[in-house]
């Protein structure tokens, strides 16, 4: 007990090390560019970050079980295309179309989960295959062409505002709060951590790790589909090549935010902060006029620094 009091400052540093990094980056940009710390720019950053943050939140669940979901980028494109297609080609009500797209995202997640738990295929391989399959289906469905002409209400989801806050940011906050509550306060959340920590004792405690895994891939499929729909809404159209490579940012966000790729450790808050580190970096470097080729290098270096600091503070026990 005494120990925990003595170590309080270090504990705080450890818990919020990534947040501190985010604040430092913001401070650096605020000093480097007068445009950075303005309401409109900050809202812009939030808007740019919101979609990747939503997808990263679902990804966090899979990583917490020591899994991974590489298919999220393709699922985003497919669900965006399906929502747009049903709305534009079939004339379905946009919300019905979106509902169907979200269900398809969950269905793909369930297929990922079943391949992993029933087929015994490693998550990396199963979802890598799904990355190819879902992208292929997107190209088939769209015939390789964008689907434009979305209903106004559809577009509103990506471009509208509620009380001055962009709708996607609003949705991200809701998703993050729900995910936080689920991981922190429900038995399901605890069982996700338990499954990622050690499966056998979890099973012996009467919890089915298979069911937990199935659920996390469905969650990841859902958030990817939601992200895909919002992306289509923001771009006023579904692009066949939307979100190519986004799985990398969706994985980077939780990992920067302290989620262990070995499973069992990580928080939703960390993931959101991780997503914002990625978002703020792109935005700030653009504002400062750093050429985009250099931006990639700087981003990579900052990721390494963020993750090393996290590892270093955690090692000191």
């Amino acid at each position: 007990m005494t120990n925990s009091i003595v170590n309080r400052p270090l504990d705080i540093l450890r818990r919020f090390s990534v947040t501190i990094i985010l604040l430092c980056i913001c401070l650096a940009f605020a000093l480097g560019s007068s445009d950075f710390f303005t309401t409109s720019n900050l809202l812009n950053v939030a808007l740019q970050t919101s979609i990747i943050a939503i997808v990263a939140i679902g990804m966090t669940f899979t990583i917490l079980t020591a899994g991974i979901d590489l298919s999220v980028g393709s699922v985003m494109a497919l669900s965006g295309a399906i929502a747009a297609g049903l709305n534009v080609r079939q004339g379905l009500d946009p919300f019905v179309a979106i509902g169907i797209a979200l269900l398809i995202g969950m269905l793909i997640g369930a297929i990922n989960g079943l391949m992993i738990i029933k087929g015994g295929i490693p998550p990396f391989v199963a979802t890598l295959a799904m990355l190819a399959i879902a992208r292929g289906l997107t190209l088939v469905y769209t015939q390789g062409r964008p689907i434009a002409g979305l209903d106004e209400r559809f577009i509103y989801l990506g471009t509208g505002q509620i009380m001055g806050i962009p709708v996607p940011v609003f949705i991200m906050v809701v998703v993050a709060i729900i995910a936080h509550i689920v991981t922190r306060y429900t038995p399901f959340g605890l069982h996700v951590y338990a499954t990622g920590g050690n499966e056998e004792p979890t099973r012996l405690a009467g919890v089915s790790p298979d069911r937990i895994k199935l659920a996390v891939y469905i969650i990841s499929g859902f958030t990817a589909a939601l992200g895909g729909v919002l992306l289509a809404a923001r771009l006023w159209s579904a692009q066949p090549n939307a979100a190519v490579g986004w799985e990398l940012d969706a994985i980077a966000a939780p990992v920067i935010g302290g989620t262990s790729l070995f499973g069992g450790v990580g928080t939703i808050g960390g993931t959101v902060v991780g997503a914002f580190i990625i978002g703020v970096l792109s935005n700030g470097l653009n504002l400062m006029g750093v050429p985009s080729y250099y931006q990639q290098v700087i981003k990579g270096v900052v990721f390494i620094l963020a993750v090393s600091l996290d590892i270093l503070t955690k090692r000191r026990r």
């Binding site: 605890l190 951590y193 338990a194 050690n198 004792p201 979890t202 919890v207």
Partner: peptide, 15 residues
């Protein structure tokens, strides 16, 4: 059969 990343209490009442 304890799970290292969970707390003592979480382990005792898991499930």
């Amino acid at each position: 059969s304890l799970i290292p990343n969970l707390t003592v209490g979480q382990n005792i009442y898991l499930g």
